[in-house]
Design a protein around this nucleic acid. Structure first.
Length: 404
DNA sequence: AACCTCAGCAACCGCCAGTAC
DNA sequence: TGTACTGGCGGTTGCTGAGGT
């Protein structure tokens, strides 16, 4: 038995909606709410298909949509998201408040795609076409999982749906790099540099200079850097996590630690000392409020997860561990790092042995080694899967050894 | 003024996944 | 467990108006 049609299309009106029809629909929804689109047209006195009513409401009539010119910021967001998500317009629309998927889709098809084409930019990776290798090196494997050394070119994570309202945060004026530098002043400890070395290894494998976060070491002391062993995060892309996000994540991370409240107060106070007084008070106040309340942010890792995104998570969390050994001596599952949402992939960072951790997502996997001792099979997870991961990470291992 | 082209946009269509029964 | 229903999504169509010839 086939499916019964949602309505008798022959009796239904098609085409542009009249003002009268709009009014009927709005009046009905204001009274009865949405839902039951199948029966709604009859109840509302409309000769329309239920799907047509739903579409009209969501794309045009509902009050919480913004129409008209898209800002440059919105435009950039669309470009970045499209590079990561493809034609998943509804997912993209979730990151653009008050914009509909249909509007974004139309804008892309009628304008943005052409603009990128004119500029010679590949719309699927936001990188100039001329710089893209003609080989399929960066293509995922047939299993959908890229080679371990491959990095997808993905947008930064500040597009998360949980992005806080930065208007309420004085600290949002800080670039992520600035913020991290400030944080770096407040942490020190044995093993910290090793942690960053490992993270650098991940970052160095990235291939998209424009978008992917990178860290560069500076041997000489920078005016920003107070400790000789601390790295300079100056080259962290401004596209990476916003300061607001970082603050939220820091608070979330700290809340899970003993004496986290005290640590957070001390850290945020110190963090803001060097800033203007008014900004410091507002930022500090917000941070404390944020911290005393339930943490606002878990984490956003948009699909497809990327090393960049995970990298940021590791960096953020590692900053607040007493030292790197603390991280390496305990099994740490960054459950909160891997967001599971309607369109998020689940990523996980697990300590796989005493001297390595594994970053996993559905399309990416690599190992990072915390010291020069490449783990033996016995130290590794016993599963074949994990052993295979080791074998596919030879590049990372050799690079790391060379680095050391 | 008439015609043509094209961008912008609303709307339609078919498909799919989740859910209820 | 299978079927029907429902809402949602993405691809596509077709209308409209502005601008050019």
């Amino acid at each position: 038995m086939g499916r019964t049609p949602c309505c008798n299309h022959e009796e239904m009106k098609k085409g542009a909606w009249t003002v009268e029809e709009d009014q009927k629909l709005v009046t009905y929804i204001q009274t009865h709410g949405t839902g039951s689109w199948r029966t709604m047209p009859q109840k509302a006195g409309l000769q329309r298909c239920g799907k047509s009513c739903r579409l009209r409401w969501f794309n045009y009539l509902r009050p919480d949509i913004k129409r008209g010119h898209l800002s440059e910021e919105e435009e950039q967001t669309i470009i970045r998201l499209h590079a990561a998500l493809g034609n998943r317009w509804s997912s993209i629309a979730k990151h653009l408040p008050m914009r509909t998927d249909n509007e974004i889709k139309n804008y892309w098809n009628s304008y943005l795609k052409k603009q990128l084409d004119i500029k010679g930019v590949d719309p699927f990776c936001t990188k100039p076409i001329s710089t893209i290798s003609s080989s399929s090196d960066s293509e995922p494997t047939t299993t959908g999982k890229p080679k371990s050394t491959d990095m997808y070119m993905v947008p930064s994570k500040n597009i998360g749906r949980h992005e806080p309202n930065t208007n309420q945060q004085g600290s949002s004026k800080l670039e992520s790099s600035q913020l991290l530098n400030k944080v770096a002043k407040n942490i020190a400890g044995p093993g910290y540099l090793d942690a960053v070395k490992s993270l650098k290894l991940v970052a160095d494998n990235s291939t998209n200079d424009d978008v992917v976060t990178k860290i560069e070491f500076e041997s000489k002391r920078d005016s920003v850097i107070q400790h000789s062993h601390e790295p300079n995060f100056s080259s962290i892309s401004s596209h990476s996590s916003t300061s607001a996000q970082l603050l939220n994540k820091m608070a979330t991370s700290l809340s899970q630690k003993a004496h986290g409240h005290e640590a957070a107060r001390a850290m945020f106070s110190k963090l803001m000392e060097s800033d203007g007084k008014s900004e410091a008070s507002s930022a500090n106040g917000h941070a404390l409020n944020l911290f005393e309340d339930e943490p606002k942010i878990t984490t956003i890792i948009d699909s497809p997860s990327s090393p960049t995104l995970i990298f940021n998570e590791v960096l953020t969390h590692s900053c607040f561990l007493d030292n790197w050994q603390c991280f390496s001596s305990n099994y740490i599952s960054f459950g909160n790092c891997g967001a599971s949402g309607d369109d998020s992939s689940v990523s996980e960072i697990n300590l796989r042995s005493s001297n390595s951790f594994c970053i996993e997502s559905h399309n990416y996997s690599t190992l990072c080694f915390l010291d020069e001792n490449v783990p033996s099979d016995s130290a590794a997870d016993k599963s074949d899967e994990y052993l295979n991961e080791i074998l596919t990470c030879e590049d990372e291992i050799s690079k790391y050894i060379q680095y050391l």
